[in-house]
């Protein structure tokens, strides 16, 4: 199908077109979904290489399920986010099974060079947010990212996390409170010191 005619087509229609042999449909679907999936995976695993692997695996599973896709049952994006969530959970469990890395295993740094963590913490607000997100319990992190960064509604989050809407509300509320407490000590990095003085 010509490129411009696919611009307004739904994700589900693109998937059906792909299953029917349309090559352009897969390119269009990848361009739509891959950046979102990568962003979500990166928020969960905080590692670019692992997030890219999760993105590729999620898209691969989408291609595999395409011929059997039942239209009208679930949004393609909801399905993809659910796969990412589960893959990231598996990844975290695999990390926990791996032997812990000690300081002796770390490569020597040249004099004057900054550590990776120190570099992230510096003044970057997004790095501060990511650092705080990484400290949240896994389910709270998933719920907070989906609600406040991906901008999804509670019913869709419930479908992705395979829990009830009330559980989603509880996780996002607790996650946001914990995040607020974690970031309270980083106000200077985040540039909020001036605001606080103005309030006093």
């Amino acid at each position: 199908m010509p490129r411009d005619t696919l611009a307004d087509v739904s994700d589900e229609t693109l998937l059906v077109l792909y299953a029917n042999g349309d090559r352009e449909a897969s390119r269009r679907l990848t361009a739509r979904l891959a950046p979102r999936i990568l962003g979500y995976a990166l928020r969960l695993v905080a590692d670019r290489a692992e997030a890219e692997d999760v993105t590729q695996e999620t898209m691969l599973r989408l291609w595999q399920v395409a011929p059997d896709w039942r239209t009208g049952e679930a949004k393609v994006s909801t399905w993809a986010y659910r796969v990412v969530t589960n893959l990231c959970t598996d990844l975290r469990r695999a990390r926990q099974r791996r032997p812990a890395v000690t300081l002796d295993d770390a490569p020597d740094l040249a004099d004057g060079s900054k550590g990776v963590v120190a570099g992230m913490i510096e003044t970057d607000r997004m790095a501060a947010l990511q650092g705080a997100l990484s400290q949240l319990p896994e389910r709270q992190r998933q719920a907070v990212v989906l609600r406040h960064i991906e901008g999804m509604g509670n019913p869709e989050i419930a479908a992705i996390m395979e829990i009830g809407v009330e559980a989603v509300e509880s996780l996002t509320a607790r996650g946001k409170r914990a995040l607020s407490a974690l970031l309270a000590g980083r106000k200077q990095d985040l540039g909020y010191d001036g605001d606080e003085e103005a309030e006093v």
Partner: peptide, 17 residues
């Protein structure tokens, strides 16, 4: 990454009926 995803898509794409 986009190239890898597209390669997977082509490898798994069903043949036109």
């Amino acid at each position: 990454l986009m190239t890898r995803i597209q390669a997977d898509a082509e490898a798994w794409q069903p043949k036109p009926r």
